[in-house]
Design a protein around this nucleic acid. Structure first.
Lengths: 188, 188
DNA sequence: GTCTATATTCGGATAGAC
DNA sequence: GTCTATCCGAATATAGAC
């Protein structure tokens, strides 16, 4: 009788571990060999569960996005105002900013390595849009708020010493109120 | 007497060409051989003018920053209001966004390759701070405006199809006015 | 271990000002 | 012709992949 393993769970576990390894070393620099070694399996096992390095990367990204969205919105209830939801999401982002920055850098490394491969671009823009849409669903689509979120993360990468999350949250609230005052249909 | 070439000009020309090559291929993927070949010289020549690949990269970045600042602020006069200056700078950024995005991606590639080398971090944060300080000098330090600039560029990298510069400019003007109304001492 | 590719070095060739 | 900054590219050393 063959050894029975939960195929889906094994895949999920591998993807989970792959995230840490990719985030640390980048897409290009992490070979399948290193990935396997870091996961405690062989390349043969990896290829048994996944068709290619790209497939691993793609599934890992989609998984991470889904987990983030669940996690970030877990405590948001319908009864909260847009402003309160914004504050809670902002706090989640601040708490997870280290990981979020690693993801951004990983995505840029992936993009660079793939040149202008349309598949890669599609994955990146789809993942990015998923975050953005959920954010706009939660707090409204006031122009500028989402780029301000992204910009805050980038600023933290570029100039770690020069950060002021509180001021940025206030700026986002200003934008939120501004859009409300307009007549509400603020579309970015 | 020896052959005379304008040493400073030759350095500048090499750095100029190096920018295009680095921006296209990234820091890690561009070897000194390829760089030399792309510039129409040999590695020997390169090392005659520069101590190392890192020095080339650093000088090239500082040069590009200086050129950008001169270029972006060329048409700004003292008589313009902060809001008008913001608009002109924003238009310059929009016109040069393709290059600016390439520079951002290049910097991220450099950072990844250098790990947490403090010299590399210093270069990146110094360059970033130079842009930011000049911007704040020109339009004021209203919280959120600078990250919003960065975020717009990043959004363009991640989701090229979903861009709205006009809305972002309006958001920045809102933030500018908000800071003014506060009493003016809005520090990010 | 071998093989490949890299950043860097160095002894010599070249050009052109005097 | 002399001199030397400039330029060349094979050689070196080192690192990593396999």
């Amino acid at each position: 009788m063959p050894k029975i393993v939960d195929h889906a769970k094994q895949r999920a576990d591998l993807l989970e571990g792959a995230f840490e390894l990719f985030a640390d070393r980048g897409y290009a620099a992490l070979s399948m060999r290193d990935l396997a070694r870091g996961l405690g399996v062989t390349t043969g096992t990896l290829y048994h569960y996944f068709k290619s390095k790209d497939v691993i990367f793609e599934e890992m990204v989609l998984r991470a996005v889904a987990r983030d969205l669940t996690d970030a919105t877990a405590e948001l209830s319908e009864e909260l105002s847009a402003s309160e939801r914004l504050r809670l999401i902002f706090e989640w982002i601040q708490a997870n900013q280290k990981d979020l920055r690693r993801v951004l850098l990983l995505v840029f490394d992936f993009q660079r390595h793939k040149g202008d491969d349309p598949l890669a671009k599609g994955l990146v823009s789809e993942a990015s849009a998923t975050y953005r849409r959920e954010f706009e669903l939660q707090v409204g689509a006031a122009p500028g708020i989402w780029p301000l979120i992204l910009g805050g993360l980038i600023q933290g990468i570029l100039e770690p010493s020069h950060e002021d999350g509180v001021a940025r949250l206030q700026a986002m609230e200003t934008l939120l109120l501004g859009a409300r005052a307009d007549g509400g249909s603020g579309v970015d």
